[in-house]
Design a protein around this nucleic acid. Structure first.
Lengths: 342, 342
DNA sequence: CTGAAAGCGCTTACAG
DNA sequence: CTGAAAGCGCTTACAG
């Protein structure tokens, strides 16, 4: 592969001048610039980003470590992150932690070894030493969706409290009194917050959230299945299952279907995180929609701000309830398909 | 950030010895190794992968350019690619082309500039000059899922012919005679092949595939919606719509629902690519399942073979039909949930 | 077993 | 406006 030296030779100039011409440095004569461009063209030269990074100490690359790429919510988040980053002149390398702390650490380490300029993190757990070290060492970092309390890093997330309150009001109005939740891992903020919001909303209606109605999931489908089966085996099963993410809702649907139960007639279902498929499931699933695209973009802007020496602030955007049929509400007539616009 | 020089100073050794100790070179005394490790620990040293790459001329990184991350099929492919790559000691950088040739080229260029060791490609189009150049220049490359004829690069893909034949036989048995397809872009192999396989299977039953029953989609949901509306506006609409991927099937469902049509009573629907949600859609969707995980792993192995100087062969794996209710078949009783095991 | 030195491909003060 | 030279952080023949 042709190097800058080859270009210099071909153009009859020094590598310094070639470098300047290629980087749009002002003090290069039009003639020199022309010869450089011609040589580049002739040789099919492309600058070596590795060498440039070593020299300039910047990679123009962002690392994004997410808990689970297979989760449509995170897929969409990743996509918006990449788009915004590209618009700002950065590439992004995605690390999929698969909800496994060791894998998350592996990716953080790999990314840091590659000297990415900044890190976007949606932690799988309460924060490993590796991550905390990176934060303390001053690596530009931003948390998205999930975060770690007590670490001085901006957080870009959505607030589901109001939406959860709306959901519970909706459920109460439909006559449901025994409401259960499939929670995410307690080590994650979203795992805890969604349970807390749910409990608070229930309390406002004079309802309790007994321990038996809090199932411990891990944000993945299998756990939704398992927890739902546990609920159904209870002497007094809940009337509603609220899954704290869309994959656990998928698992819950699997479990309900395996038992031959009808939703919402036999049991109601709702989910945190809205996805296009929820419009077409049997029945359409009532869900809480996050402004996913906006979150991804805001997170990138905050991170790039940090990288480039500007403040870089935390952002909280509201989530909202999207009512469909899975909790018992009659379908609002064949209205136009509603979809999360994020 | 501490460099190898700092470690050498701390350990009282030369950088050469530190480097050797860190790379497991045999000729390092146990004492020296111990001192290096202690210094590394004390300094929190982590080797700079950028510098190492520049020196060794290898990045231990694979590039993966896929047509659309938001498509669950490609998400799963990307995940299996990353897993297998990690197992073989490689990282992967994903570029999402979003079915846009210019974006695909952008990613290929960026990846090449970063000097990735090899490229995994699922081309959005018939092959841009940039891609062809890379292939000709000897960059280790492998096509996954989609490929470009006439380029000497291994292809890892699945063959859907038998499954499509099974699908058409299934549809024929159910009494359907007017079958339409929402095709992918003609510039892609999967876009063409699926139509060809469908037409051939129809012919085997003495059926035609009129042009009006071939809708031009782009593998994304909106096009599925648009094409389906076109079908429904026909004087003689089809009895079956076969979407060449899962996102266009989603669009088709949207369109059908907007018109208040029932599936399969008013019109049947089938899709290429199976996804977990198809079990829970209304109705469950009959689909052709690819061995996605196996494809991703095989592609990585082929690419790494090429990179490390071994042959690296093409692989073709069969897809298979998964019958559900969207074409009219009565549900095969509440059997255990079937799911693609890939 | 260890170290001094060259070199990977760039960028960028420093001189002219 | 241009070039010679240093240096980013590593690895690896080459000597010893």
């Amino acid at each position: 592969m042709a190097s800058i030296k080859d270009v210099a030779a071909e153009a009859g100039l020094s590598v310094a001048t070639v470098s300047r011409a290629l980087n749009g440095h002002p003090s290069v004569s039009p003639a020199a610039r022309r010869r450089v461009l011609a040589a580049v063209e002739a040789l099919g030269y492309r600058p070596n980003a590795v060498a440039r990074s070593l020299r300039t100490d910047q990679t123009r690359t962002l690392g994004l470590v997410i808990s689970d790429v297979m989760n449509p919510y995170f897929t969409e988040l990743a996509r918006s992150v990449e788009e915004e980053a590209r618009a700002l002149g950065y590439s992004v390398i995605i690390g999929n932690a698969d909800e496994r702390p060791e894998l998350q650490d592996h990716h953080v380490t790999t990314l840091l070894d590659r000297r990415i300029d900044g890190l976007l993190l949606s932690p799988t757990d309460g924060g490993s030493p590796r991550m905390l070290d990176a934060a303390r060492a001053g690596t530009p970092m931003v948390f998205v969706d999930r975060w770690i309390p007590g670490v001085d890093v901006p957080v870009v997330r959505s607030d589901g409290q109001t939406a959860v309150r709306d959901l519970v009001a909706h459920l109460y109005r439909l006559g449901h009194r025994r409401l259960a939740i499939i929670a995410g891992p307690a080590a994650t903020t979203t795992g805890r917050e969604r349970v807390d919001a749910f409990r608070a909303a229930l309390r406002a209606h004079g309802l309790e959230l007994p321990d038996a109605y809090i199932g411990q999931g891990d944000f993945q489908a299998d756990s939704g299945r398992r927890v739902t089966e546990g609920f159904l085996d209870l002497a007094e099963p809940p009337e509603v299952v609220f899954a704290a993410d869309n994959l656990m809702a998928l698992g819950a649907l699997d479990a309900l279907r395996a038992r031959g139960l009808r939703v919402p007639d036999d049991i109601a279902l709702a989910a945190f995180d809205d996805i296009p498929w929820f419009v077409h499931t049997d029945p359409p699933v009532t869900a809480i929609a996050q402004p996913t695209g906006a979150l991804g973009r805001a997170a990138v802007r905050a991170l790039v701000d940090r990288i480039e020496g500007r403040p870089g602030e935390s952002v909280t955007l509201p989530a909202r309830l999207v009512v469909r049929r899975s909790c018992g509400e009659p379908a609002p007539s064949p209205s136009p398909v509603r979809r999360s616009t994020s």
